[in-house]
Structures are given as C-alpha cells and as structure tokens.
C-alpha cells in the first residue's frame, strides 16, 4: 500500500516500465504484440521463432524468457524497459522485482484456447492431448486467478485485461484502452488496423469469454 502510494506520488526509481503482453498460449498475445508494434511501441524480440501456420504474422517472442523459471540472472530483462515483451501468464510469477511492469493480460474463451492449442500440438507432433480437457481447463482457470492476484499484490505491477473476442469485434475501443493504459501517445489507428479478424479461426459456439 505505502509502496504503491510512493510510486504514484514520486514515480518509480526503476526506469520506464516493461510492457508485458501475457495470457495463456493462443489467447491473442501475438495479435496484441502486432498491435503494439504497429502503434509504435518498441518490441523486445529475437525473431528466433518465425511465423508459421499457427501464427502467420509472427510470434514476437524472446527465446530466453522461456527459461525464466530456471534462470537466476534475469538482468537481461532491463533491456525491455520502455518496450513490449511477450511472456505467458505462467511465467509472470518469475519476473524479477527490479523492474516495473504494465501487464496487458489477454483473455479468451477457454474452449477456444484449448482447441487452438490442440491443433498446434498436433502440428508440432507433441502427442495426443484429447484427454484431460476438463483438468486442463481447471488448471488454466487457476493460472488466470493466480496471475490476477499476483499483479494486485505486487506494487510494481499494473494490469489491464483485454478480451480477444472484443479486440476482434471492436479493435478501435481496444486500441484506445491499451493506449490509455500505456500513458497515451501511440498510434491508435495503426493499432486498430493491425487486428486481422480472419485469424480468429477457433470460435466456440457459446461465444463467452
């Protein structure tokens, strides 16, 4: 509480915040990275994982962040200050406290997430994933709640939730909300134009978020 108040009154001593684009895999994180890039937000990515049929417009990933759970030296993340970095929600707990973070948390219907992940796993030849769908849904629900709790508890985190379906249906409103969350000054029209509704391929019938 006091730390949060201090930050509001005097600003942070940790430089510009790192913009973390997070969420479950296949929840629209790459689309949001594309929006940010179009809007003029610098991106921290190494380009190792190149575009493919699952993400035709690219992944915008940083390979090293996949080791965030295991690595002890995380100082390389300071390079991301003032830039956008993609990190799935499972890794949020492992972000070091020597940075401030603005987390854009992508949300998507869990049935859609799992359907899209299953197709990707099949293409990557990572085995049969048809079993345990309910258990995975429950585990992912817990992951979402954990991420929200963690961002509330840690004074150096701020979070906005963006629903994938809403971003597709109303990219202008999404661009406006994200721009405001980041302090303004980015190109909302370009962010809006970066949304490609044709890539929304795994739709659930219920349409819930």
């Amino acid at each position: 509480m006091l730390e949060s108040l201090r930050r509001r009154l005097f600003g942070s001593r940790q430089g510009e915040p790192i913009v973390i684009v997070s969420g479950l895999p296949r929840s629209g994180t790459s689309m949001m990275m594309k929006m940010l890039e179009a809007g003029g937000v610098p991106i921290l990515s190494d380009g190792v994982r190149s575009a493919d049929v699952d993400n035709p417009k690219g992944y915008f990933e940083l390979e090293r962040i996949k080791d965030l759970e295991k690595e002890t030296d995380k100082s390389y993340l300071r390079e991301g200050r003032g830039k956008a970095v993609k990190a799935i929600s499972f890794l949020i707990k492992d972000l070091p406290d020597d940075n401030d973070y603005r987390v854009i948390f992508m949300r998507r219907d869990l049935d859609e997430v799992l359907a899209s992940q299953d197709k990707m796993i099949a293409r990557l030849d990572q085995g049969d994933t048809s079993a345990e769908q309910e258990a995975m849904k429950e585990a992912y629900r817990n992951d979402i709640v954990r991420t929200r709790l963690l961002c509330k508890k840690r004074a150096n985190f701020e979070l906005i939730e963006v629903h994938y379906r809403v971003a597709i249906e109303d990219p202008a409103a999404t661009a406006r909300a994200v721009n405001a969350f980041l302090g303004g000054g980015f190109d909302e029209a370009a962010m809006r134009e970066a949304v490609d509704a044709s890539l929304y391929r795994n739709r659930s019938r219920a349409g819930g978020a």
């Binding site: 996949k66 965030l68 295991k70 799935i88 992940q117 817990n142 992951d143």
Partner: peptide
Amino acid sequence: LHFEDAGSDDDIRDRLKGLGYIS
C-alpha cells in the same frame, strides 16, 4: 492452494513445454 501454489502445476508445465512456450 490452487491459486497460491503455482509450483505444483505440472499439468500446465507439461503442456506449455509441448507448445514450445517454456523450456
């Protein structure tokens, strides 16, 4: 405990490895 103890979530860890999102 489900919400506070992320370390025990092996189901998620295995799936994320399969998808190439963690090492």
